[in-house]
Amino acid sequence: MAGAITVHTSEETSKRPRHITESRPVQWLLIGLALLFLGFIVLLPLVSVFVEAFKKGIGVYFDSITEPDALSALRLTLIVALIAVPVNTIFGIAAAWAISKFKFRGKNILITLIDLPFAVSPVISGLIYVLLFGAQGFFGPWLDERGIQIIFAVPGMVLATVFVTVPFVARELIPLMQAQGVQEEEAAASLGAKGWQIFWKVTLPNIKWGLLYGVILCNARAMGEFGAVSVVSGHIRGETNTLPLHIEILYNEYQFSASFAVASLLVMLAVVTLIAKSIVEWKSGQQKRAHQTD
């Protein structure tokens, strides 16, 4: 698959000669259709989250996002993301380097394995760690004797999140690095550059925007993961609840406004990351253009 490759909606492609584009009314019709679809499917849920969040007034809103349990959920969410994202970033770079710069057999299977967490049901993603580390699981008794708690504690939640977000950075980098080929690295190598030097001086500058986009998406998913984390969390209030789980708890306590208020917090985190992404794209587009005029 092409992966969610960085897209540069630069002016160039939008400007096409009139004979190979649609007439203006058709264009507007198509734009209208696209916006209508996005509106019903994506925008409306977003708006409803905010409407529900502020239904009981701004006071309730701020109370619910500054309540100790919400703050501890926020802290845990950040901790989990802070571990899961860097780990998957390192993995993504290593995997992309091996896959894009070398030839070996079984590459398709390897790529498929990297993709697999995309397609595995979140329920299963959580279940597998219970099967491994649960008290009745493969390593459970061994861990129990040593007093190590993995599931129903932070390590299990980190593992589940890492599993779910494995593909994001790797899938972003692989097509990008494949497209860039190996000439620049080979040139550097023939000039006597060492491995890490080649990576830092040649490869990294080329992939940094794609890498950043992958990290941003990975982070967004890590913070928002619900299904897998729910299976391994144990739902101890104020201790093993991440933001998505805290939202569910509030919702189940009929505190609908509070639950949507916390949800809006996550939406805002997402929006911030998406804005960051736009800046990334804009900058990389700018750089590309600067590069071309050089």
């Binding site: 977003l46 979140p122 998406l217 928002g224 619900f226 939202i247 569910e248 997402a270």
Partner: peptide
């Protein structure tokens, strides 16, 4: 956005 929004929300 659907990538980032928790599925339960």
């Amino acid at each position: 956005l659907p990538f980032a929004l928790p599925t339960a929300v």
